[in-house]
Design a protein around this nucleic acid. Structure first.
Lengths: 344, 344
DNA sequence: GTGAAAGCGCTAACAC
DNA sequence: GTGTTAGCGCTTTCAC
């Protein structure tokens, strides 16, 4: 009788399957990739052999032979940010099931951008998907000539390398600031990650300044803080801002996490939001609408961005010529309790 | 002069580098993997050729030839849960820089556990790291005989397949429930993901019941709810529990997200926490300590789990025999405001 | 110190 | 329908 799985005698190859099924290796290969071209009876014998031997084809061998890959390399700025999970889900669905994602976080302490790309390119991915291409022209150059299609997610403010799906960060930043101004607040703080290392943050900041300028409000560079990811960092930033300017009337946090941390800090310290201080987030995460008071934010279509990117990429990889190279999915200002007018 | 990068003329191979450097392909290969065995001058010419051509070796070809892989496959229950990010970070650091992670989310709608494993195994990973092995003996069997070392993260309640790093979920669940009981609460709800599909949730539930039994409190199966990920789901579960039992005194949520959602719901609805209702989370996420009132929780060493798993795995892959097969990293009850005694 | 052969597991093009 | 011959890009072994 059959069914003696070799538990650890080296991986089962297609040859083993062929022998067991009493056919040539080629027939097995065909049965797997073009079942219709193989006689039904043969196919069944092969299937049986495959499950008896617990055969799993080698992705390497196949991809070496064809030169094509079913891998999509994804580079994210920070794996810890849940916003990206939505994009990945959309991406997976847009791409369809034949592609597999290889995800890499942002460069660690030592690695440069290019090192990360390089180690990913070793797997000859069919495409590279990046969120936040980084600002360095060098990096963009490298990506442009790396030989694989590049999809940029999130930012539409630079000239796309190839495909870009996102929204206008500058306009979004402007909308956020305009809203704070429209509610009667003029002394405004701005909290973001490093503008130098994060192009989207930089663009949101430009938008913030656009709004101030249009409203005739003077820039207060000392009220523009940079920090790193973490709820508590938002609270800290707020403390710092209030130290610099006790008359602070509103803060635009370019991420909901910071805004939520700040909101909770206000609650603990008895700082009245929105009466005394208006707080504006960015991203409209699930928690934003649940906070007390609820958090005003800018909603960006994370899931749709991923999905659209996946769809366009799939088209391009399939050789389609009608591919949308630049897709603006827009954003939405979500007004909630944390920015209700200070005096009605 | 050199430096005419072929922008899109097919990938650069080792052969191209060899020709440019005026040596044989073999010498290039050696210069890359055993630099010491190649003459300095030759090595420099090769290095020059590599950077001029922007050569990136093919991971496939190399791994096909050697039979070894530098990939570690990781299967996570849900990519959206930030807790796993910490584990991944620890894992990366424990493994050292020579390994690359291939991450897959839990099976989607259609895919079975085995399908996910299978598609990952096609890449011949050096090892499989899974968080939450699933309860099905069939799956565990499959993993045991799949031919690669398996590392289980998070749960220590079953017999390890190979290496297991985690904490005792049952004991942790018990500790959480005991704490609620110790604060004078006897009418308790329990909220978790599907116990059938999530072994750790099942174990925490057993611990919950252990505690009730030891305290002589009757089981109330109608107060044991199952739900899915999401802050709002926690609020919904609480509403449901209060509908069933208005005299509810406490709830043990097996995830902080639900507990936070419930906490915010109480704040909106004017339900007094902890006076009227005690709320207990699990995982001690950053937000837990920042909530108002702050959330009691069970702290588990996510980062350390990943790191320890990476370290032990690296040892095993390096052929070490002194590998710790079962590492209990423990947990910690963190008592905060949300479970302060109802009556002092 | 360097090169020439063979082969990893599979697929592409042709035969039969 | 099925088998045969090459060869993907690299590493291994053994010559030189």
């Amino acid at each position: 009788m059959p069914s003696n799985d070799s538990p650890a005698s080296g991986p089962v190859t297609m040859d083993h399957v062929a022998q067991r099924a009493g056919v040539s290796l080629m027939t097995v290969s065909r049965a797997l990739r073009a079942p219709a071209t193989v006689a039904e009876a043969t196919r069944e014998r092969i299937q049986a052999a495959i499950s008896e031997l617990n055969y799993v084809g080698s992705a390497f061998a196949g991809q070496l032979a064809t030169g094509r890959t079913r891998l999509i390399a994804v580079v994210l700025p920070d794996l810890r940010n849940t916003a990206f999970a939505l994009e990945m889900q959309g991406l997976t669905e847009g791409l369809g099931s034949e592609y597999q994602l290889v995800v890499a976080g942002a460069p660690g302490a030592g690695d440069s951008d290019e090192q990360v790309f390089r180690s990913l390119l070793a797997y000859r991915p069919a495409a590279l998907v990046i969120h936040g291409a980084g600002r360095s022209p060098g990096t963009r150059d490298y990506l442009a000539r790396c030989g694989v299609p590049v999809v940029e997610l999130g930012s539409l403010d630079s000239k796309p390398i190839n495909i870009a799906v996102g929204y206008a960060n500058r306009a979004a930043g402007k909308a956020a600031a305009e809203h704070l101004l429209a509610t009667g607040r003029r002394v405004l703080g701005f909290v973001s990650p490093s503008k130098e290392r994060n192009a989207r943050a930089h663009d949101r900041w430009l938008g913030f300044r656009d709004a101030l300028k249009a409203a005739g409000v003077a820039f207060r560079p000392e009220l523009e803080l940079e920090t790193v990811l973490g709820y508590e960092r938002g609270a800290e930033a707020l403390v710092q801002l209030l130290q610099i300017e006790p008359k602070l009337q509103g803060v635009f946090f370019t991420g909901d996490g910071w805004a939520i941390g700040a909101l909770l800090h206000c609650q603990r310290q008895g700082i009245a939001v929105p009466r005394q201080l208006g707080i504006m987030g960015f991203d409209d995460q699930e928690l934003a609408g649940l906070m007390v008071p609820s958090l005003s934010s800018i909603q960006v279509p994370r899931y749709e961005m991923g999905k659209e990117a996946g769809t366009q990429l799939r088209l391009q990889l399939a050789g389609e010529t009608r591919v949308r190279k630049r897709v603006d999915l827009g954003f939405k200002l979500v007004v909630r309790g944390s920015t209700a007018p200070a005096r009605s």
